[in-house]
């Protein structure tokens, strides 16, 4: 029967336990190796010392959040055009993971900024844009949960997912231009830290791939969770239909 099928496969995305398990194992192993590489293999920065190691988390996490919001944008666009729940599921999952990642990026950024720039916070363009990004996607999640019902929440969120993403480059350039006329009061030795030696670059690259896997795994896990929720809803739905 079609209804049994739809119970197993509510979002139309299919179930992927084997891929997900494989991803979980790979991500876990890669994470452990990454930790080893970051703390045991990568050389200590001559100027900044051990704090510099936060860099191997900070950069991949920040870049992954950009990727996440790009996925949100695509998912939102496709959801409005196609109106199939699977696109909303992808956008929703990606947004939640993206907000976690961008939060981590901000926190690691602050940890980094204190010793390097001698301040917890500076209105530097990348930092400012990241903060605005955080605000936009928190609003994305808020409008989804404050909407009168689930389908409206999905549409409102998709609207924010599109408008917010289109806005990001404008935010970035406005902050960069704004910055160029209001020079930063603190000029840290950022240039020196930028120069990575070979091992550092390799560890960073590895860290990058690790977080890419981590991102994929988290998104899949979130979509599965939503599929389960929807399967439950679908069961109640069929019961209500036949009950009358």
């Amino acid at each position: 029967m079609a209804s049994t099928q739809s119970i197993q496969n509510p979002g139309g995305l299919g179930s992927f336990p084997s891929i997900k398990t494989a991803l979980a194992v790979i991500t876990g192993v890669m994470m452990l190796v990454d930790l080893y590489l970051i703390f045991m293999v990568a050389p200590t920065d001559s100027v900044l010392g051990h704090v510099q190691r936060v860099f191997y988390f900070h950069v991949p996490v920040a870049i992954m959040s950009f990727l996440a919001f790009f996925v949100v944008f695509l998912g939102s666009l496709m959801y409005l055009i196609k109106r199939t729940p699977k696109w909303d599921a992808i956008a929703h999952a990606s947004a939640e993971v993206g907000v976690v990642f961008v939060t981590l990026a901000l926190i690691t950024g602050i940890i980094w900024a204190r010793p390097v720039w001698n301040t917890w916070w500076t209105w530097e363009p990348r930092l400012t844009t990241t903060l605005i990004l955080w605000l936009i996607y928190v609003a994305y999640l808020m409008v989804r949960s404050y909407a009168p019902n689930q389908s409206k929440g999905a549409v409102y969120a998709a609207v924010m997912g599109i408008v917010g993403f289109v806005d990001v480059p404008i935010v970035y350039y406005s902050v960069v231009w704004w910055r160029s006329i209001h020079p930063s009061p603190v000029v840290g030795p950022f240039a020196q830290a930028d120069a990575l030696d070979g091992t550092m670059a390799l560890v960073l690259l590895y860290s990058f791939i690790t977080f890419l896997f981590f991102f994929a795994y988290m998104v899949m896990e979130r979509i599965e969770l939503r599929n389960t929720e929807e399967a439950l809803g679908r069961m109640r739905f069929t019961l209500r239909r036949s009950g009358r």
């Binding site: 605000l135 609003a139 404050y146 009168p148 409102y156 917010g164 350039y173 406005s174």
Partner: peptide, 23 residues
């Protein structure tokens, strides 16, 4: 148009509006 339909609409509008109009 979105905020007016949500719960606590007075707060929802600035939350959506300010980050986007920042530029």
């Amino acid at each position: 148009a979105m905020a007016v339909q949500t719960r606590s609409r007075e707060i929802m509008l600035p939350v959506l509006f300010f980050p986007v109009v920042l530029p």
